[in-house]
């Protein structure tokens, strides 16, 4: 990727709400340049979307998150792709990746209650014929997500004026 486009991408990853003007000012480009880069990134399928980084625990609504490890057994007719299509379509699945190591797929699941998460895994995921095993880990506390630390944010103890 050309260097300029890469720097635009880096800034979007830092804060997707930067306006084209914000990005342009930081990189000495015109807003039109930035918009063209963003459009090209979107068209090429590099940038797939924009979303908020949420600390669900800070909501009183009791959203529950879980990481689910999934093992599958493939046969001549069924590959990872086939299984992935079935699983990715569930709205409860917020992230879904094929990984190396002890299990095949890593899922992130979000629902309103612990019960809803386990019901989803046992009723929607486990019955899939190729699935041989699921291990569900409930998230107990999030310290950092998508590069953003979930601390109280107030760490600047500098004097307001210093020479």
């Amino acid at each position: 990727m050309d260097d300029e486009r890469r720097r635009v991408l880096d800034l979007l990853c830092e804060d997707a709400r930067y306006t084209a003007e914000d990005v342009a000012r930081q990189l000495d480009l015109t807003p039109e340049d930035v918009e063209a880069h963003v459009e090209a990134l979107e068209n090429a399928g590099v940038v797939r979307g924009y979303t908020a980084v949420v600390d669900w625990a800070a909501l009183d609504d009791g959203i529950v998150e879980a990481k689910v490890e999934l093992n599958v057994e493939l046969d001549r007719e069924t590959g990872y792709e086939d299984i992935s299509r079935r699983i990715a379509k569930f709205p409860e699945v917020t992230a879904f990746q094929l990984v190396s190591g002890d299990y095949d797929f890593a899922l992130e699941v979000r629902a309103d209650t612990m019960n809803a998460v386990s019901r989803f895994v046992s009723e929607e995921i486990a019955p899939i014929p190729e699935v041989t095993q699921t291990v569900t880990h409930y998230v107990m506390e999030t310290y950092k997500d998508d590069g953003i630390e979930f601390d109280d944010g107030e760490t600047d103890d500098r004097l307001s004026y210093s020479p």
Partner: peptide, 26 residues
């Protein structure tokens, strides 16, 4: 006395100051 002392004291009394008066890295 340092020329910024007076300003520092005014800023101390305020809640929502964004300080571009800092002489050190963030």
């Amino acid at each position: 006395p340092s020329g910024i002392r007076r300003f520092f004291e005014i800023a101390e009394e305020m809640d929502d100051v964004v300080s571009l008066g800092v002489g050190e890295p963030d």
